[in-house]
Design a binder for these strands. Sequence first.
DNA 1: CTCTATTAGTTTCATATGTAACTAATTGAC
DNA 2: GTCAATTAGTTACATATGAAACTAATAGAG
Lengths: 155, 155
Amino acid sequence: MSDEVKKNRLRLREFLPYRLSVLSNTVSRGIANLYDREFGLTIWQWRVMAVTGDTPGISATDIGQRTAMDKVAVSRAVAGLIELGYLERKTSESDGRRSQLFLTPAGQDIYEMIVPIALEAERKLMAPLTSEEQAELSRLMQKLAGSASPERPLW
Amino acid sequence: MSDEVKKNRLRLREFLPYRLSVLSNTVSRGIANLYDREFGLTIWQWRVMAVTGDTPGISATDIGQRTAMDKVAVSRAVAGLIELGYLERKTSESDGRRSQLFLTPAGQDIYEMIVPIALEAERKLMAPLTSEEQAELSRLMQKLAGSASPERPLW
DNA sequence: CTCTATTAGTTTCATATGTAACTAATTGAC
DNA sequence: GTCAATTAGTTACATATGAAACTAATAGAG
């Protein structure tokens, strides 16, 4: 048991929610700068491009589920990407409410440029961990994610 | 090496920055709800209370360093807490720009109520991990934090 | 069919947040 | 001492974000 709990004292620097938040913000900020500087994209726009590139024809709602974005954020990111000429929207023939989203050729180009850069950034981030440690981190995060799922709030 | 890298394909669900962001947001949201529902505090206000409770007389600037908050966020959180009657500000005698912050008796009461609740939430969050896994997670996060430090951007 | 409930997506509005400009106090060079 | 440069903290402004209201289309009960 950690000192923190033993002493019944809360040290922010040892408090997991705080540590997660700081680490995530640091990483996200770095990545956001990268996408913005190199391609003029926000993180949300990039997420939308990433899943659309991986799953052409996906709808905005499904993007939201795959990216943990709410529908307003998806709507705005999609609008921005269409404006930039990277995304194209068709209306589903079977359901007039649904959109089907596709990367334009320009969007494909950007997509193919970003993927290796993003993977390289991830690689550098994880470089200090051995591959066993990387696998272990992944496993532990998955456990935590199950524990913290919003459907089953612990607090 | 993971499939993701091997295939040179980016699957958002396996991409560490994305996973960190989603996990952190889920946890933060749960915690924020807890603080707000039970005590009417924002996460930032609670962070300020936490370090002030731990280090009475601390200045706003030092709070910023200890909580990874920028000075504007600290200023706003402090203003809110003073408004709520949980925090008290004195001007340093040796340096008229510096403030010295203290919990009021009401603030102390809240502080003492929150600490065990927050620790319990953390305990529940980590419950699915063995204590070895918890220690390992902590160690791996620390390594990552070093790797991602903003002073030494990798991208 | 037809009418109500639901769903996909957008817009509106109120609030949160970060950057930059600002004020007040202090420090340090001279 | 005096004045430029720095530091602590606040304010102002522009942008980001999320909740709720809204529009358009579909589904489902009868």
